[in-house]
Amino acid sequence: MSVLEVNDLRVRFRVQSPLQALVRGNADPFIDAVRQVSFSIEEGKTFTLVGESGSGKSTLALAVARLLPSAEGSIKFNGSEVTSMSDSELMDYRKQISMMWQNPVGSLSPRMKVGSLITEPYKIHGLNDRDRKAEGRRLLEMVGLPAHFSQRYPHQLSGGQARRVGVARALALSPKLIIADEPTAGLDVSVQGEILNLLNKVQDDLGVSMFVITHNLNVVRHISDHTAIMYLGRFLEIGPTDTLFAEPKHPYTSALLAANPEPDPDALREQLELKGEVPSLLNRPSGCEFHTRCPFVQSQCKDALPELAGEESHHYRCYFPIAE
């Protein structure tokens, strides 16, 4: 059963005012930050989104949480349509999903103590029947922090501890889905493992689904069931994580896998180095949007955008997928 189902989602941002667009004769003064995106998250499973900066990962997460309006497409949460929800319905929806923000310290109010921070969701959603102190202790214990941490301010926490507080706050309302934006960015390797183990444990204990955004492929392998690779707002490849790692079909996926320096000085890496940088959204390349950097580009790639192809759950958008 899927908790979240996203179909053909499109998120647009206006880049010129109507007048500017008229003066410059621009018929379409928008950029598509997310385009033709479809995926679903099964109950108790983890879906990971991988992409370089500017590929639209965070925009997609915000659109799913309905913190950004979408232009087209549907988002279904437990069968009900999110895009047409009223404000009060949205309030209820947001009780069932929670966000872990990218910047762990920045997302905690510097003037509130940890105890108040992690129990604030109860206050916001009017759940006054609970003993907030006891709940605070329970949440801290769940994420492996000692109870006296509730008296600390965010600046007294280390990066890893701030992440744990973020997890505690996300768990407060026993959500069905947690959206985690770069949960390990900026953490040392020894601490990174702790946070990932914590997320895994939380999932095993509570059966919560997760939507994880990251650009660290090494992490993806150990936490996720399904993975999508995003480039310029589109999914280039989507499928079960194991399959994606073992048999990447899209050249971009395999370049990302190759771009992962291994801590082994003798490692012979597959040399599939990408040239250039991600093109601007203002100026999308024609045809397959990856053709400007693709090492295997052919003339067909420049003409028309390839459709999602593939079998069963593994799909990719490429005319010349990598053969096994």
Partner: peptide
Amino acid sequence: LECDPANIAQKTRELPT
């Protein structure tokens, strides 16, 4: 070195720390 997820070939739910 052990902690680096890149060094862990086997998929695991319990990463070393």
